[in-house]
Design a protein around this nucleic acid. Structure first.
Length: 564
RNA sequence: UGGGGCGUAGCCAAGCGGUAAGGCAACGGGUUUUGAUCCCGUCAUGCCCAGGUUCGAAUCCUGGCGCCCCAGCCA
């Protein structure tokens, strides 16, 4: 995937930019921004926005600013600020130097607010939150003017200065835009511009301010101050665009970015709302923001996803204004494509079943050469120890074949050991419950790198030498929820009831080929015939390495099994 | 009968008046020491519905229908 030629996606936003460039708008410049609020970790939905904003900037020789929209210190903190930068960087994007902060503009914002006051376009309102709501009206009824709407400019100036000076309690007063309480667009019914917040330490400005600007006021001005040309955001802000434009039209600022909205990502079988993700973390339902079950960038990274796969995903899903519901299969296809090309192969036995080769010498160990990749010789090969006692997977043996399509090992039958010999099962040893616990097999020593004489052996199974294999824990992941749309599911009152109890299955007695003992942090392998796995250094112990399942291999046998 | 937005295959998505790209999924078949990969093939007489304009409409017009978003001193 990283060696795939770069294809530039086409979408309606790029069409608009093409048109703007053609018309000489913005002096031929393109400047975008990615403006996360540092109140949580980034998720795959943010990745869509990141790829869009940084991708556009890259393809038009422009620039994309990383800007923290940090106007609500109550919910924000430094951990999130740092995690967000790490994630954007990991995804492969660069914002050239220092990130921007909306809080860098607090002083200028205050000045622009004063300008609105001076123009009679903003006023101090003493209504409390509940009263404000009542005065706002409803979706179908107009609101009514606040009794404080006609305060004099002088009084408004004075009050606003005193608000900044800390003379008033939280909620006692707000600064409001003076627009139109009867507007059919509720965002224009004298929206709040500033609120008072005492006693919170802002991660950037400390306790310098007790006055914090609202998004609708901060965002357009921050964009304009940075010289943003195209301000890309999600569809729910479409109703806010008239307000975005109103702010810039009514203050003395030379730049007026164009806001363009696109639809947010909806990925099936997971949730994207930060409120819900935060809850999963805070209630300990998952192990943290980087839990491999989470749709966060940190979670996907720990799971074993690559930046290239996530970028490819964002290219494949496109950018439009239509509602969407993306199937997990697309994400999975992207990571399989990348890992199939780039992950070295290895053998791992998930559910060990002992095999004793009765005609193989007890004290013998031979080293067999195995290619690290079936199609990429440059990836080299490794030596695998082979000895009298091996482990194979329980699923690869059945005493009697369940159907004619079963081509693994059966009693009296033959199978190829991957990268090694053909063996025949002569005897099954079972426990009291009748479960096979050991197989006695004979090995055909003429079948190393050669087909046996006069017969066809179709099945190939993986194995690990019992004496040399290392024990490991494998964590098998599945979708986080049991339903495709946990956000809109009406069958439960609380979405956590829809969590998939099988989203994590831990196997603690797996046996890996010995070379895997020196896996590097975050390194990915294909465990042949099973799936792609990623070494989890954070979860591993010295005596028990842990690997996370990134995604399973496509499994046409599972389909056949289901049909029977 | 408040405002805004969106309807092209199971899921995404091109298409911009000239006769429905592509991807994912699915389904056949071939190769294979991974039931993987890879390769070949199939998959919308039709674009939410109904009218209209036009030689010609997914694209233009009219009228319906459906879905999403908005009543934080969150973003």
């Amino acid at each position: 995937m990283s060696d795939k030629p770069i294809s530039t996606p086409s979408n309606f936003i790029r069409h608009i930019i093409d048109e703007d460039l053609k018309n000489g708008k913005n002096g031929g410049q393109v400047l975008t921004r990615f403006p996360p609020e540092p109140n949580g970790y980034l998720h795959i939905g943010h990745a869509k926005s990141i790829c869009l904003n940084f991708g556009v900037a890259r393809d038009y020789q422009g620039q994309c600013n990383l800007r923290f929209d940090d106007t609500n210190p109550h919910k924000e903190n430094l951990e999130f600020v740092e995690a967000i930068q790490a994630d954007v960087k990991w995804l492969g994007f660069d914002w050239g130097g220092k990130p921007f902060y909306a809080s860098d503009y607090f002083e200028q914002l205050y000045g622009f607010a004063m300008e609105l006051i001076d123009k009679g376009l903003a006023y101090i309102c003493d209504l409390n939150a509940e009263q404000t709501r009542e005065y706002r009206g409803t979706l179908t009824e107009p609101g009514k003017n606040s009794p404080y709407r006609e305060r004099s400019i002088e009084e408004n100036r004075d009050l606003f200065q005193r608000m900044r000076a800390g003379e008033f309690a939280d909620g006692a007063k707000v600064l409001r835009a003076r627009i139109d309480m009867a507007s059919p667009n509720i965002n224009l019914r004298d929206p709040t511009l500033y609120r008072i917040r005492h006693g919170v330490i802002h991660h950037q400005t400390g306790s310098e301010w007790c006055l914090y600007p609202m998004y609708d006021f901060t965002h357009p001005i921050s964009d304009a101050l940075e010289g943003v040309t195209h301000s890309l955001c999600t569809l729910e802000f479409e109703d806010h665009r008239p307000l975005y434009d109103w702010v810039l039209d009514n203050i003395s600022i030379p730049c007026h970015p164009q806001q363009i909205e696109f639809s947010r990502l909806n990925l099936q079988y997971t949730v994207m709302s930060k409120r819900k993700l935060t809850r999963l973390v805070e209630e300990g339902i998952v192990e943290g923001w980087d839990d491999p079950r989470m749709p966060t960038i940190a979670g996907l990274r720990r799971r074993g996803y690559t930046p290239a796969a996530i970028r490819e995903f964002c290219d494949r899903i496109g950018v439009t204004k239509s509602d969407n519901s993306i199937e997990m299969a697309i994400l999975e296809s992207c990571i399989r494509e990348d890992l199939d090309a780039h992950a070295p192969r290895a053998m791992a036995v998930l559910h060990p079943l002992k095999v004793v080769l009765s005609n193989y010498p007890e004290d013998k160990t031979e080293m067999l050469s195995a290619a690290n990749h079936p199609k990429d010789e440059a990836m080299g090969s490794r030596q695998l120890p082979f000895s009298r006692e091996l482990y194979i997977d329980r699923a690869d043996f059945m005493e009697v074949a369940p159907n004619k399509k079963f081509k693994r090992l059966v009693l009296g039958g033959e199978v190829r050991l991957r990268n090694a010999y053909v063996i025949r099962c002569d005897e099954v040893i079972k426990d009291n419950a009748g479960e096979p616990i050991e197989l006695r097999c004979s090995v055909d020593m003429d079948t190393l790198g050669a087909n046996p004489e006069g017969r066809k052996v179709k099945g190939v199974i993986h194995w690990v030498s019992a004496q040399h294999g290392i024990r490991a824990e494998l964590r098998l992941y599945d979708r986080l929820f049991t339903v495709p749309h946990p956000d809109s599911d009406k069958s439960v009152t609380d979405f956590v009831e829809l969590l998939n109890p099988q989203a994590l299955r831990t196997l603690t007695d797996c046996i890996l080929e010995p070379g895997l003992a020196k896996a590097a942090e975050g390194s990915r392998y294909q465990f042949e015939r099973e799936g792609y796995f990623c070494f989890d250094a954070k979860a591993s112990r010295a005596d028990l390495p842990v690997f996370n399942l990134v995604v399973g291999l496509k499994d046409s046998w599972a389909k056949i099994e289901q049909q029977d």
